[in-house]
Write a protein that binds this DNA or RNA. Sequence first.
DNA 1: TTGTAAGCGTTATCAC
DNA 2: GTGATAACGCTTACAA
Lengths: 336, 336
Amino acid sequence: MEGKKVTLRDLALKAGLSVNTISRALKDKEDIALSTRKTIKDLAKEMGYVGNALAGSLRSGLTKTIAVIVSDVANPHFGIMVKDIEKSARKHNYTIFVINTEDEHEMEERAIYTAIGKNVDGIIICPSQRSAETIRILKKNGVPFVLIGRRFEEEPDFDYVICDDEKGGYLATKHLLDNGHKRVLFLNGPDRISSARERLDGYRRAHREAGLPVSGELIIEVGASAGDTRQIVKGLIERKADFTGLFAFNDVIAWEAAYVLQKYGFRVPEDYAVVGFDNIQSRLFIPFQLSSVSNSKGKMSKRAVDIVLHKINHPDSRERFREVIDTTLILRESTK
Amino acid sequence: MEGKKVTLRDLALKAGLSVNTISRALKDKEDIALSTRKTIKDLAKEMGYVGNALAGSLRSGLTKTIAVIVSDVANPHFGIMVKDIEKSARKHNYTIFVINTEDEHEMEERAIYTAIGKNVDGIIICPSQRSAETIRILKKNGVPFVLIGRRFEEEPDFDYVICDDEKGGYLATKHLLDNGHKRVLFLNGPDRISSARERLDGYRRAHREAGLPVSGELIIEVGASAGDTRQIVKGLIERKADFTGLFAFNDVIAWEAAYVLQKYGFRVPEDYAVVGFDNIQSRLFIPFQLSSVSNSKGKMSKRAVDIVLHKINHPDSRERFREVIDTTLILRESTK
DNA sequence: TTGTAAGCGTTATCAC
DNA sequence: GTGATAACGCTTACAA
C-alpha cells in the first residue's frame, strides 16, 4: 500500500497504451474514445495517480504558484492578509509560498531569489526596505509582481495596492487632538517604509490644521519585533514623558503600549487615549476596545491577487496599477 | 533590462563552454578549474542568472519544499506556528507552501492533493477531520508527513507532535474549581478533533478529583469561525446560564467570550473568571491579562520540522515519533 | 482514435 | 578539467 509515486508511465504500462494517450485521456481531450477515457480515469483513481505538476510546469512554463513575501505572518495583520490572499489564489487554482523576511534586507533578497528560482508565476510582496533595489531584480527577471501595503515613490513603474496611510494618520491624530490631547505620542514604524512616512505626514497635517506644533520627541520609531515597544514605553513612563494621547503605527504596537500602561496602573482611556492602525478587531474579537484605523485588509488582499493574476495572464499589457484604498477611523472605548 | 530568464544554456553559449561545465562550476565542484569557476560565477552574476529549481527538482526528485496545512493562518495560534515553521525550514533551505483548510473536509483533501502534485518533499499538517482517511493518501503516496497539534488514536502509525491536551484541560479546570467556581463553562472545539476530546478528558478529570459533577449543559462546542462564539455567549448570558468560571478551547475563543461579557457590563475576573489555551500572550502583548494554558508553540513547530526533515532524509527509517509536549498553566489577572 | 518524437532546464554518468 | 549524453515526467506537434 505504501509506495512510490505513480507516474503516467506506470498507468501506460498497466493499460497497454502510450503515455501520451493516458495524459490526454486524463485531461478529457475530445480525440480520445470516451470508453478509453473512462477506463483510464478509473485506473488512475485505483492506482492513486496524483500527477507531477513539476514536470508539467517545466514544459508549460507555469507553476500555478504565487509567492507571498511579508515581514511576519505571526503579526495578525499579515496573518489575516495571507489568509485572504491564499483564499483568493486558491479560487484560481493557485498555491502560495509564504516567506517571512523579518524586515531584514538580506532575507528579503533571499526570499526573492528563492521565489524566482522556484519559478513562481507571480509575487505579492510587502517590501521592508527603503531601497527598491531588491525589487528591481523582479523586473529584471520578468516576474509579475505587485507591492502590497507599501510603495516606492521613486519607482512609479511598480504596481501597488496600499491603503490611504496619510489619511489614516491624519484621522487618528485629528481625533486625539480634537479630544483635547495636546501632546500626542506617535509610536511609528521604521522610517524606511513608505507607510510609516505617510502616516507621519498625516500626523503632521492634523497638527498643522489644529495650529499645534509637532514636537520631535513625541515621534518615536519602534522596531518591528515584539517586545521592543515595551521597553520604549516603560522608558517614557519612567521619565514621565509629557503626553496623553497615543497613536501607534499598528494595533500590535498599540496593544503592547496599552499593556505596559496597564502594568503601571494607568487606565485607558482615562489616563491615556490610544489609537491603533489595522483594525484587527474587525476579525479578532479582543476584549480590549481599541480605536483603530481600518484599512480593509480583505479588499487589499483581493486586489493584490487580481492584479498579479492579471499581469500573469496579460504579460504584454502596459496597464499600471496604483491603488490606494480608503481608510476610516473606527472609534472604540480606548479613546472615549 | 527587462527580460526572459537566463538559463545555463545562455551562460554556456556566452562562455563558450558546455552547459554541464557551467552547472558544475556554479556548484563549486572540485573538478572544475578554479579560474573557470570564478569566470563563470562572475558571468552568472552579470547576466542575472537565477537558476530553475524546477528542472533541478525534476531530475533530483527533491523540491526543497514543505507544505504546511492548517485550518486558518489568521488565527494567531497558527500564524505563530507557521512563522516558526517557516523559520526553521528556511534554515535548512526549505521553502513552505501554506494551505488553509478552514477546517473543511473537502479543502483538506484538496490541500493534500495539491501538495502531492507539487511534489513537496514533506508535509506538516494539523488535521481537522475525525477520519484519518485523507491522511492515508499521504502514506499511500509515500510522502513523509507529521501531524501537528492533533492525532488519530486509531492510527498509531502516524507520527505526531502534540501538546499535553489532557493535562492542559485538567490544569485549567482544576484552577477554576480550586478558586471556588463550582460551575465551569467549557467552550470547547469540535469533538471531531483529538485535542478537543483530550482537553475535555482533562476537564472531566478535574471535576472527578474535586468530587463535583460534570453537567452536560456546561460543555458547548463552538465553531472555528470567528463570530460564532459571540452568538453563543450572548445566548448564555441572556438566558442567565448558571456559571462563573469559563474555560475556552483556545485564546481566540476566550477573548471573544470575554469581549461579549464586557459588552454586557460584566467584569473579568470579578464576575467571571476566564482561562484560555495557547498562551498567545507570550508572543503578542494584548492589554487583557488572560490566564492561559501554554503549549510551547515554538517547540512544537521546531520538532515538527525536525521530524519531517528526518523522515525526508531517512526514508527507510522505521523510527516512530509520538511526541507530547508538556503544558503548563500561566496565571494572569483574568482569574485573579 | 492513438502513437512517436522532441523538448522544457537541470543533473548524473562516463568518456575524453 | 571539461564535454557529450541520457534522464527526470510531462506536454505539444505531428505522424500513423
